[in-house]
Write a protein that binds this DNA or RNA. Structure first.
Lengths: 203, 203
DNA sequence: ACTCACATGTAAAGAGTTACATGATTTT
DNA sequence: AAAATCATGTAACTCTTTACATGTGAGT
């Protein structure tokens, strides 16, 4: 129970829907996993090479004029078993890495305009993600994942909307408070631009 | 606009609330950032050493009997400026890395019992996180962050609850469907344990 | 003319996790 | 008697990101 569900394993998963090239897999990642798993060419191509070396996928090269061979990968029996094993052994972790929330934790050290920008950008970001999920839900799903997509897309919609609405509900108040802080700061310390540092007594 | 808000910068942020040791900082991370940023000793101690070398923090060692010196770090003026700059330059990214959702994307390849375990574990995990946030909200907050905590804690509560409720609302249906699939599979292929692979025609 | 889509790959750098190494004191 | 807390640090490993390297054809 320690398989880490890395890019290699994910590639096997994508290939379980049918043969595909590295380029195709990248697009599948973007369309389908983008709001909970990211991978670029720099991880996908080496992963496919390793999978081929391990015998988990076979590779068929199709010559093309003017561009590199299109290499179509296909899951082998061994690869399918390996993937099913990985599914059985992976712990269902769920991690958030949010620079946005860190910034918000230190919101009291920022000027109001910066704070407004941060909040508005994050709302816009969530709106973009929601629009993409809407597109996904309306039949534009990647091939082969009709069974699986609904739960993940629904999860994304529920969670992103909750996040978006929460931020939107707090935005104006937070920015107003920050403006008051800005006014106090310029009044208190006309020459110093930096925020005052508060000390607390140790436990 | 490319500062990556790494562990080093986060340590500066924690120290903006007052002097602390590496051990203290780890605890602060756990209590306050745990649901959107993780860091272990293996990143914190080297980060503090680098910050000291760069002059962003000063260090005072307090001898103790029977255990290593307690090294208390304190933000310098230069460090505070550096941190404020980082706040101004960091993009408010927000990334989710969810093995849970990946597994759910391939739920149709799993036995019903495995699926039930995954869903129940994730619900339990979110319940744990919610309980921790409740504790944080009720005055048990880490020292010095009274201004900042409410937004982040509120965000966590709203989002985690939405996620938890969504999973709980889908759980029974998904498991029931998986049981039907299991029954079909054993009926179709009495000898083969592995799931059948569906092919689709390429685009 | 310019940009987007197609198409694959390598190399170096950056960042974090995990395991190792040590050991007393306090709580259960 | 066992487990948790206090307390710091290093080294190896894993993984990802970013930049580099190359080039055509189709659409605007």
């Amino acid at each position: 129970m320690s398989a880490s569900l890395d890019v290699k394993t994910l590639c096997l998963g994508v290939l379980s829907h049918g043969p595909a090239s590295g380029y195709d897999i990248k697009k599948y990642f973007e369309q389908t996993f983008s709001h909970f798993y990211l991978a670029g060419y720099g991880s996908i191509y080496p992963a496919l090479a390793e999978l081929a070396a391990a015998g988990f996928v076979s590779c068929e090269a199709h010559s093309q004029t003017g561009r590199p061979d299109r290499k179509v990968y296909r899951l082998t029996d061994s690869g399918r078993h390996h993937f099913l094993d990985a599914l059985a052994e992976t712990e269902p972790n769920h991690k958030v890495r949010s620079e946005f929330l860190v910034l918000m934790h230190f919101a009291h050290l920022m000027p109001a305009e910066r704070l407004a920008t941060i909040l508005d950008e994050r709302i816009a970001g969530f709106d973009r993600d929601l629009a993409m999920l809407d597109g996904l839900t309306r039949g534009a799903a990647a091939p082969g994942c009709a069974d699986a997509a609904p739960f993940c897309a629904g999860y994304g919609q529920v969670v992103l909307r909750a996040a978006r609405d929460y931020i939107a509900s707090q935005r104006d108040r937070l920015v107003a408070e920050a403006r008051q802080r800005d006014a106090h700061r310029t009044a208190d310390t006309p020459t110093a631009a930096a925020a005052p540092q508060r000390r607390h007594t140790g436990t």
